[in-house]
Amino acid sequence: MDAKVAKPGEGIRLSDLWNDPYPIYAKLRREVPVAWVPAANRYLVTRHEDIVALERQPEIFSADEENSLMKRVMGHTLLRKDGPSHKRERVACEPALRPATVKNHWMPEFRRIVDELIDGFITDGEADLFDRFAAPCAALSLARMLGLTNVDQKDLREWSQAMMDGTGNYADDPEVWRRAEAASSGVDAALDEVIPYLSRNPDQSLVSCMLHADDPLSREEIAANVKVIIGGGLNEPRDAIATGAYALLSNPRQRAAVEADFALWRLVFEETIRWVAPIGMYPRQTTREVELGGTLLPKGARIGVVLASGNRDETVFENPDVFDIHRAKKPHVAFGGGPHFCLGAWAARVQVGEVALPALFGRLKNLRLADEPVRFGGWVFRGPLNLPCRWDA
C-alpha cells in the first residue's frame, strides 16, 4: 500500500470520546485507522493489527514520549522507558507479582478484603457497588501489594483518580493539574514514612522488592513507579469489577452459566476487559519516519495506542460491541503487549476473576440492578461511574 498523508480527525471532540468513544473508533477503523486527531494532539491507532505490530517494534514506537503528561504528573516511570532501563525497573518489581506469589501470598489477602467489605453492607439490601465494593476492594488490595499500609483507602482512591486525570489532561485544565500535583505530594509523604521501615524489614510488597532488588531502585525511581502503579493498579481492577458485574447483571443467561461453573469466571474477566478496556489508550512516539496502517508518520510523531478500539475490531472479534463470554477465543490487547505487557496482569486476573466477582455474586442473594441507570465515562481510562444494585438481605 502506498503511504499517504494522514487525514485529520477534525470534528472529534474530547467530550464525545469521554461520553462514548466506540462509534468514533469504528468510523476511524473503517476510514482512517491511523488518524491525526487535533483535539488529542496525536495520531490515534485504532486497528488491532496495527496495535500488535507497533508493540513488536519498541525501537521505532518508543514509550519514552517527550513532554509526557505522565512524566509531568508522576516523574519518569518504567512505563515511559525502553530497553535496559525499563527492564531493570520491571525486574525489580516482578517478585511481588509472580503467579506463585499472587496465589500463595496475595490471594488470601484479596479474600479477606473482599469478605470484610461485603460483611460491611450485606444486610443493607442495596448499595452503589462501585463506591461500596469495587473501588475500596481495588484500593485496599493495592495498598497491601505496594506496602503502603499507612495509607487510607479513600486517600489512595483520591490520589489515583487525580493522577490519572492528570495523565489524561489533554485539555490542559489547571484544576486537574492542581489536584494531580497534590496527589503526587501525598504519595511522596506516604513513601517517606514507609521506606525506612521496609528498608529494615523486607517483605513481599512492591516497595520492598524495589528497595531490595539485586540492583536496587533509587528513591526517585521508586516514587515514580509507585505513582504509576497507584494509577493503573487501582483503576483497572476497580473498573473490571464494576464492568464485569454490570455485564453479568445485564445478561441473565451468561450469569446462570457462570454461577453453575466456577471455571467460567476467568472468561468473564477476559471478556470484561476486552469489552470495556479499563486502560483505553496510552501514548507512544516514533523514533523515525515510518508507515503504519497506510499513514506515513514523521519522526517524533505522538501516537495514541487505542486499546479500547483494538478490542472491538470487527475483523478480529465477531459482534465486538456485545459482551459474550462464549465467543471464540481471540487475543485481546487490554494488557498491552511487547516489553510493556501489564506487569500486574496475573494479580488482576486473580483479584477480579477468582475472588471479587465470584464472592459478590455468591454472597449477595438475588443480586440485581436497581432502577437508577448505570453510567460509563472516559476514553483514556473508561469504566462505570456508578453501579446501583439491590439484593435480598
Rank of each mutant, 00 (worst) to 15 (best):
D192K: 14
A171W: 05
N169H: 11
W177S: 15
S199A: 11
V207Y: 00
D192C: 03
Q204C: 02
Y170C: 09
N169S: 14
T167D: 08
A190F: 02
A180S: 13
D173M: 06
A183L: 07
R179A: 15
V187N: 08
A171Q: 12
V207H: 01
G168S: 15
P202S: 09
I195N: 02
Y170K: 13
G168F: 03
V207S: 01
V194R: 10
R179P: 02
A182Y: 02
S185C: 03
S208M: 01
A190E: 04
A182G: 03
N201S: 05
P202R: 10
A190K: 04
P202D: 13
I195K: 05
T167C: 12
W177L: 14
M163N: 09
R179L: 11
P174C: 10
D188T: 15
D192L: 09
M163P: 08
I195H: 02
D192I: 02
D173N: 15
D172R: 14
A171P: 00
D165I: 02
P202G: 10
A190D: 01
A183F: 04
D172Y: 08
A189H: 10
R178Q: 15
V194M: 13
G168R: 09
Y170V: 14
S185A: 15
V207K: 01
P196R: 03
D173I: 07
P174V: 13
S184T: 13
P202I: 06
Q204T: 02
E175C: 03
T167P: 05
L191T: 04
N201G: 00
Y197W: 07
N201A: 03
T167N: 09
L206S: 01
E175P: 00
V187G: 11
E175V: 08
E175D: 13
G168N: 11
D192V: 03
D173L: 07
N169T: 12
Q204K: 12
R200D: 13
M163K: 08
D203F: 04
R178W: 03
D203L: 04
Y197A: 02
Y170I: 11
L198W: 00
E193K: 07
A189C: 05
V194W: 01
A182T: 11
S205W: 06
L191W: 03
M164D: 01
D203S: 05
A182H: 05
T167I: 15
A189V: 13
N169R: 09
E193P: 00
A189R: 14
M163V: 04
E193T: 08
L198I: 02
S184A: 15
E193L: 05
A190W: 02
I195W: 01
A171T: 10
L198R: 05
W177R: 15
I195L: 08
P174H: 10
V187T: 12
D172T: 06
G168T: 12
L191A: 06
Y170M: 14
D188R: 15
S199Q: 12
S208E: 01
Y170L: 14
V176F: 04
E181G: 07
S208Y: 00
R200T: 11
G166D: 10
A183I: 07
W177K: 14
V176A: 11
E181A: 15
M164W: 00
N201T: 10
V207Q: 01
N201E: 09
L206W: 02
Y170Q: 14
M164K: 03
E181D: 14
I195G: 00
